[in-house]
Design a protein around this nucleic acid. Structure first.
Lengths: 191, 191
DNA sequence: AACTATACGGAGGCTACCTCCACTTAGCAA
DNA sequence: TTGCTAAGTGGAGGTAGCCTCCGTATAGTT
């Protein structure tokens, strides 16, 4: 689909078969997660990729590892989209548009988000790629708005992420509801 | 601990041993959920109550059934606390205090909340006691504030629940963070 | 004391996660 | 080409949790 990030676990490049299997697994996982939500067994994904379960586990030692790999591109898209916003829009408008961006990302990727949060809860040390990216982008947007004096200063990044991200964890949000919620949050954040 | 709701599944009263086991299970579950979060197997709860796993399942056919029974009292406390608020406080102040109440309820009972939400996501028809109570109380508070003209009218009950409840689903909120978040939400809800 | 509806309990089926290791093979070097 | 070996494969099987089924036990009644 998109260019696959080199799973260069060690220094050495992957052997051809390993590389092929890695990609088969990734695209199988993508398909499966698109059809069913996230409640799919790893066995089924391995079968879909016509690969043994052991192979899956060597490439993706954890369920979360696999989920992250699947969504890696899209999280990175969120980050680059945000950078554009920061370059082109005024601080407040950037914040507005960022929240919409983030909400729609978190909504469509609810599965990842949910599991990511669960994982962080279980192992506080675990700092996954997605988490780093999300924290970084949110921080850039919020602090810029605060320094411009348009956003309250007594709010932290984690508050904002929690507010917007948290409510996507509840099921069945309509687009209208998302918009209403963001409107409330924005009104609350305004300096 | 508190008066146990009669598990009057059918019309007939429970046999003495059944009743005893029901209460043993309930208090074992209460203890266990207090110590570990929610990741306890039902087998362990049954063992703690010195009761067979089959007995547990007859009384609580679903994991959720048990969780609900454990927290039933506390959800009801939320409801009665809210009624007092409505009787004694001005519409806006009632809303403020309600959000704090709700947040602290949802935070300490995160386990139930999480599983409840998951369950609702899986089976949309399922309308559990907790859900009914939460919806009912939130609605009373919000519409009162709206009718008094102090809260935005373009906000629905489910939006508010989603905002406040959702962010409790992410782990490790400090009391200060909860307060900051509520402040943002309140500022956003104000008419 | 006998009888029966009610309730008990745990063996066992199912499914998912994950590990381990005997086998296979890609890629290199002679 | 051939052989060698580090790299990779795959699935049997261990663990754990959810839940069901049904033979056994007993409370409560007659």
């Amino acid at each position: 689909m998109t260019a696959v990030a080199e799973p260069t676990t060690s220094g050495r490049p992957l052997r051809a078969d390993a590389r092929r299997n890695y990609e088969r697994l990734l695209s199988a996982a993508r398909e499966v997660f698109r059809e069913h939500e996230t409640d799919t067994s790893l066995e089924k994904i391995a079968a879909r990729a016509e690969v043994g379960i052991g192979t899956l586990y060597r490439h993706f030692p954890t369920r979360l590892t696999l989920l992250e790999a699947v969504y890696r591109d899209e999280v990175d898209d969120l980050a680059t989209g945000t950078e554009k916003l920061l370059a082109s829009a005024e601080p407040w408008e950037a914040l507005e548009r960022y929240l919409h961006l983030f909400m729609s990302y978190a909504t469509t990727k609810r599965a990842l988000f949910h599991e990511l949060v669960d994982a962080v809860g279980r192992d506080a040390e675990l700092l996954t790629h997605s988490r780093q990216v999300i924290n970084g982008t949110a921080e850039a947007v919020l602090t810029r708005a605060q320094e411009a004096g348009v956003a309250r200063r007594d709010v932290e990044v984690s508050d904002m992420i929690r507010l917007v991200g948290g409510c996507t964890m509840m099921p069945e949000a309509s687009a209208e509801q998302s918009d209403r919620i963001i409107a409330v949050v924005l009104a609350g954040l305004r300096a």
